[in-house]
Write a protein that binds this DNA or RNA. Structure first.
Length: 305
DNA sequence: CCCCAGGCAGCGC
DNA sequence: GCGCTGCATGGG
């Protein structure tokens, strides 16, 4: 395994399920490198996280990431500030004890705080195709446009690079989908120009709906993608992305049915409201992720990583 | 060959 | 407002 010069240890007494967190957070470029050890690239540095009882080993190519010491960065990136003690309300637990038991297996799943631009482009690639294909697309962006960090690792490209890229190369990254490639280039251009200010959308002063509506103005970003970017890239905890799996468990577990093949905007928002009514407004995002993971792994038998 | 995979936009009605 | 279809590709 690649030797990383800087290391820190985060001693904590809060629950952390690293594998579920990285998988559900859709950090598509992260890889499992050993038992309880995962490696990724964030803000142009390699980051390796190893989970131990009540401690997290942090190793990196730099002593600071995004201007913060490794310990502080990991705390924010992994969403460890969230209080999990009231994630599921007493009324939810008494009404759905079996779901509570099932989801509790993944207690310690957190909401990632990814790099906003990488999250934005990654989720634009995650439309109606399998995880393997999504991972391939996102990796190609780094392979073709990123800068070397080490022999084996590259950064995610900057907005300026993608904005100036040849369309034919972007098409390769976008699973040969020229429409998606154009959309991605247009969004990268908007970010590069400062017209789409991701830092502003992730500021505490920016509310969720404003961030969401701003993203929705761009082609290639619909309700679900906007919610994903808000939840995992911009730190808006009340976002509740509804994909095909979430739609399935809402129907199966809570009897919330939708008839049509594709969700209209209105129906999508209605489904969100129904889910928030059950899971609680402030906890819906994280609680939904636990249910999502339980549904995928235990009910559908799909594997993470 | 079918349907499904962490959807979106555009079309006809 | 709706419901459907094309986009694109790999796997079951």
């Amino acid at each position: 395994m690649l030797a990383l010069p800087y290391r820190a240890e985060l001693h904590h007494n809060v629950p952390l399920n690293l594998e579920a967190t990285l998988f559900c957070g859709q950090a598509f470029r992260w890889q499992k490198v050993a038992d309880n050890a995962f490696q990724g690239v964030v803000y142009g540095e390699i980051l390796r996280l190893t989970s131990r009882p009540n401690a997290l080993l942090i190793e990196s190519t730099a002593s600071r990431i995004n201007g913060k010491p490794l310990r502080d960065f990991a705390w924010i990136y992994l969403g460890l500030e969230d209080n999990l003690s009231e994630l599921f309300s007493p009324s939810f637990i008494s009404r759905y004890p079996h779901l509570y038991r099932g989801a509790s297996k993944y207690f310690g799943l957190r909401l990632l705080r990814q790099e906003p631009f990488e999250a934005l482009i990654s989720f634009m690639c995650a439309q109606g195709i399998g995880i393997a294909l999504i991972r391939r697309q996102v990796s190609l962006f780094s392979l073709l446009f990123g800068d070397f960090i080490a022999i084996t690792e590259k950064s995610f490209p900057a907005p300026e690079v993608l904005a100036a890229a040849r369309l034919s190369t972007l098409v390769k990254c976008a699973n040969n989908n020229p429409i998606r490639a154009k959309n991605i280039r247009a969004v990268a251009h908007a970010v590069a120009k400062g017209e789409l200010d991701l830092r502003q959308l992730s500021a505490p002063t920016c509310d969720f709906q404003t961030a969401r509506e701003t993203l929705l103005r761009y082609d290639g970003i619909g309700e679900k993608i906007a919610d994903c970017v808000c939840l995992f890239g911009l730190g808006h905890r009340e976002a509740f992305p509804i994909d095909t799996h979430v739609r399935q468990y809402l129907k199966e577990w809570f009897g919330i049915k939708t008839s049509t093949a594709t969700l209209s905007s209105k129906t999508y928002r209605w489904l969100c409201d129904e889910a928030r009514a059950i899971l609680g407004k402030t906890n819906a995002g994280l609680a939904g992720q636990l249910l999502f993971h339980y549904w995928r792994k235990d009910i559908k038998g799909l594997t993470a990583f």
